[in-house]
Design a protein around this nucleic acid. Structure first.
Lengths: 233, 233
DNA sequence: CGTATTCTTGACTTATATCAATGTCGGTGG
DNA sequence: CCACCGACATTGATATAAGTCAAGAATACG
């Protein structure tokens, strides 16, 4: 598949790179279309490639020993993902599934060390990326430790809005299909509880739901809800 | 303070470094003693230095907007910590407190980019370190999403044993003072619940408790408990 | 159109937090 | 050296948020 250089150059990860550097970087890269529902890699498979999402959305999931599933994160366009090798792992720690038809760029894993050694700047960028993810993970841990479910769901929805909110009349539409179950797996709760919460919010006019759909009507009200002090009595 | 080169060379982070490289690395470094209870840096302070723990143990905590505290992680000897700048942050995201008298090595933050650019290998090492932490964070998220408190506490104690277990007659002693409150903040629960669980375990002979003390007598039994399937009925 | 997901909603249960009281250890200073 | 104080821990009673169980409705899809 033909690579669209302008799209790639617009990405934060490559912003300070010369055309020459970029060319060398893209030489061993392959582009790949991934239809909705298909996995790009699965948990436990040997990490043969690392990826960059050009278009679409992915859900990265993990399954625990006892069969429970959680959504580790959502991959948005421009995000690097699946660089297990860089994290000293031989296999992928999770499964990446296309939530909508998507396009990725992929490199063989073994070019990673060379890349990093020849492009210290890329190394720094990549490190920042992982660092941000670590932060996000800590935020999530903090939320799960200290906050009740409703606030956690509020935070999760707000993050989705920020990363995947497309303006639409009446509010911001989450730009890919997302089920109550998905939200439950992102917040550490059950789809029942999520459903009840979203219903309540819909009653208050904060959102508009639908089958695998979510439209956020009142962002500021949600933000207040997310940061409100739990009433002590 | 005089630097003990042999100790430093034994650390994983520097294992593939030549003496010359190491010298240049250590030139701008300072050693610092931290008495028990004292903070090395505090949440929100500008990130002026990054650190390596040579001796002792640290607890890294974060306080949420509403005043709740959690323990993000425990820093063990040989761990890098406080490299906020590398993660594209100007300030420290948490507070690092000495759980016992400790010794750290510290560098000014602004040498980090130069270090990384001159030592691609160090970059890779550092990245692996962050990667591992990300993994740990995901493990924790997964546990908090899917497991009941008792199993989470079991996992937490087992991690402590692995990282800080000193053999002693009767079992493995956690090598630094740790309170029920601490364990609660590591697992996302309350000190009351932790206390009840540890009491129950003590009754079964799995552990021996004490004021800020923990002796694990039966590691395998704990491991079974941690991985046991929750009984369905 | 019927079949399969996904979602909603109610009734009930339970794990765990909260509230409250008491107990115990260990260091400090008189 | 002993007594006292403050921090830490235990344990019981009660409350409640959220999970589980169960049934049905809405929506999408072949």
């Amino acid at each position: 598949m033909k690579l669209d250089r302008t799209v790639i150059k617009s990405l934060l990860l490559f912003d300070r790179m010369t055309d020459d550097e970029l060319d060398r970087l893209l030489l061993p890269a392959q582009s790949r279309r991934v239809p909705i529902g298909e996995a790009i890699f699965e948990q436990g498979q040997p990490a043969v490639s690392f990826f960059l999402l050009l278009h679409g959305r992915l859900k990265v999931t993990q399954v625990t020993a006892d069969g429970q599933q959680i959504i580790v994160r959502v991959v948005h366009p421009g995000d690097l993902f699946g660089f297990a090798k860089a994290l000293q792992r031989a296999d992928y720690p999770g499964t990446a599934i296309a939530a909508v038809d998507s396009v990725t760029l992929c490199w063989p894993t073994d070019v990673w060390p060379t890349f990093v050694e020849h492009n210290p700047r890329l190394a720094v960028s990549a490190m920042e990326t992982i660092g941000q993810r670590l932060e996000e993970a800590h935020v999530r841990i903090r939320e799960m430790s200290t906050q009740e479910v409703e606030k956690r769901v509020a935070h999760t929805v707000l993050r989705l809005v920020k990363k995947a909110g497309r303006p639409e009349l009446g509010g911001l539409r989450i730009d890919f299909p997302i089920s109550r179950q998905d939200i439950a797996e992102m917040t550490g709760t059950t789809l029942h509880t999520v459903s009840r919460i979203l219903s309540a919010w819909e009653g208050k006019g904060l959102i508009k739901g639908g089958r695998q759909k979510l439209l956020v009507c009142n962002v500021t009200a949600l933000e207040q809800l997310a940061s409100a002090a739990p009433e002590r009595k």
